[in-house]
């Protein structure tokens, strides 16, 4: 079974975020970067499937030079090889552009399964996975919390809203987006770290992929990022106790929507 895992490097959850003066993004100089959380679960799921059924795990990322690190981490944990998509023209891709670039690589790899994290912890769009499936004309299932390989297909448990789940069967090849918590991601063993350097880490540019810049022109652009303005207002409810209770219940039900 050939599995490709898409991994994004994002700021560590414990980072203190400071917005750039021009409000275009956050200051990256002092950030610690790490693999996106749900992508780590996706990698672990791929490694578990490989260990149970054999095959190959390819880790793939797109990003600036520093994001090469998530591939090295993946190789240390047991991925067999890695693909690093790195090009200046990739810097400002939107989800559509990302899906197109990943599709260019993956259409040549002929994977049985493509695993992505549910969503990126920084931009949180949860869109690249499904859009990539569309580009590759593959079935996809999002928010997967369990996988089981069937004869020629895959049975997965999908998380729905409100604590509901459903079982879905899909043919292969397919794309899944993996929910955090599906497994327990491993640490790289020392032997894994020492073996990492001997594994293939291939870097591909836009030219290597043959993606024309025109196809990658963003359809959406980030206008501005900002910290939401917090407002605080104190309201004194007045009147007889019954009236105050009635007002309070009304506010809890209709304004705070907690009842």
């Amino acid at each position: 079974m050939k599995i490709c895992v898409l991994i994004k490097q994002v700021p560590d959850a414990g980072s203190v975020l400071r917005i750039r003066d021009d409000e275009s993004w956050v200051e990256e100089d002092k950030l610690v970067f790490t693999a996106n959380e749900s992508d780590s679960y996706a990698l672990e799921e791929a490694l578990l499937l490989k260990e149970a059924h054999g095959g190959e795990v390819i880790a793939c990322t797109l990003g600036p030079e520093r994001s090469r690190q998530v591939l090295k981490d993946a190789l240390s944990k047991g991925a067999d090889r890695a693909i690093f998509l790195h090009d200046e023209s990739f810097n400002n891709l939107d989800c559509n552009g990302l899906a197109k670039v990943f599709a260019k690589v993956l259409e040549k790899e002929h994977c049985d399964l493509i695993l992505c994290g549910l969503q990126a912890d920084d931009t949180g769009e949860a869109a690249v996975g499904p859009m990539l499936a569309q580009e590759l004309h593959l079935p996809h299932v999002t928010m997967v919390v369990q996988t089981e390989l069937l004869d020629g297909g895959l049975k997965v448990k999908q998380e729905l809203e409100g604590g509901w789940f459903r079982q879905v069967e899909t043919s292969l090849p397919a794309l899944l987006t993996i929910q955090s918590g599906i497994n327990k991601p491993r640490y790289a063993s020392l032997r894994g770290i020492m073996a990492m350097k001997k594994k293939e880490l291939r870097e591909l540019s836009a030219t290597d992929l043959g993606v024309p810049a025109t196809e990658l022109a963003p359809m959406q652009t980030l206008q501005r990022i900002y910290v939401p303005v917090k407002t605080k207002e104190t309201v004194y409810l007045e009147g007889a106790p019954e009236e105050v209770v009635a007002q309070l219940v009304d506010k809890l039900a209709n304004e705070a929507k907690v009842l």
Binding site: K72, D73, S76, Y187, A188, L190, I193, M194, M196, K197
Partner: peptide, 14 residues
Amino acid sequence: SEEEILVQHTARDF
């Protein structure tokens, strides 16, 4: 080296 730093990262996570 890169391996040395990776060893530190992993051990710290553990």
